[in-house]
Amino acid sequence: MRTCLVVDDSRVIRKVARRILEEIGFDVAEASDGMEALAWCRTDMPHAILLDWNMPVMNGLEFLQQLRRQPGGDAPVVVFCTVENDPDHIARALGAGAAEYIMKPFDSDIIESKFVEAGLL
């Protein structure tokens, strides 16, 4: 089964995302900031990453930039999932190599639709 790493500092968001992602057929792993997510990726590169922007220690954009410099780090399909909802943030995320962008609040339809756009479903 394919793995999706959920990176968000909110335990509640991680829980909601996990439920939705498991329903659409992913194994889910969790990290609460970019640094933790990088450590996870170095051990076991996931197929997809659902990524928050604002987090302590290392934010989502920094994580994505670092991830793409890791060996094998260009493989995961990254979908941002954040409260940042202005065109400038979206353009920066796509420019850094994100495949899709979800603006919170989200529901299962939005996650599913965005994962289809990203070629994950």
Binding site: N85, D86, P87, I90, A91, A93, L94, A98, E100, Y101, I102, M103, F106, D109, I110, S113, K114, E117
Partner: peptide, 20 residues
């Protein structure tokens, strides 16, 4: 609405063809 533009519209086209 933000909800509507997230169904069936790629983010790439959202930033290209929409203003907020």
């Amino acid at each position: 609405t933000q909800f509507e533009v997230q169904r069936g519209l790629p983010a790439r086209l959202l930033v290209k063809y929409f203003d907020k």
